[in-house]
């Protein structure tokens, strides 16, 4: 299966990456090989078969509307961010 420059740029944008030409070319080659392999599924007749997304077909369970104490403290969590300012996580300009 061919992977065009346009395809790879689209996937890079969907994935929130920004890649140089060399890495882009390498990934384009890799993905072409992988897409070729997974296209093997075309040989398999799946007409009339229901899809499986989850092996136990579990149903969503609603929790009672109680206040749950968090395992981690606010301080522990803020300490993980690269930059903090007035008990908030600091990020570069958004707009």
């Amino acid at each position: 299966m061919e992977v065009t420059e346009q395809d790879i740029n689209h996937l890079i944008s969907l994935s929130s990456f920004s890649l140089g030409q060399a890495e882009k070319d390498a990934l384009r080659r890799d993905l072409a090989g992988i897409f070729k392999y997974i296209s093997k599924l075309d040989e398999l007749d799946t007409s009339g078969v229901e899809p499986t997304y989850q092996v136990f077909e579990m149903k969503n369970v609603w929790r009672p509307d109680d206040i749950v104490t968090q395992d981690a403290s606010r301080e522990d969590l803020l300490a993980l961010a690269k930059e903090e300012c007035e008990h908030q996580i600091k990020v570069p300009k958004v707009l």
């Binding site: 969907l14 994935s15 929130s16 990456f17 920004s18 390498a26 990934l27 993905l31």
Partner: peptide
């Protein structure tokens, strides 16, 4: 976002993310 993800993931992580998005 883009630079953190591009520098922070290994090549194989990137492959899988891109296959998944495809």
């Amino acid at each position: 976002f883009e630079n953190t993800r591009s520098e922070g993931f290994m090549r194989e992580n990137k492959r899988r993310i891109m296959i998944g998005n495809f």
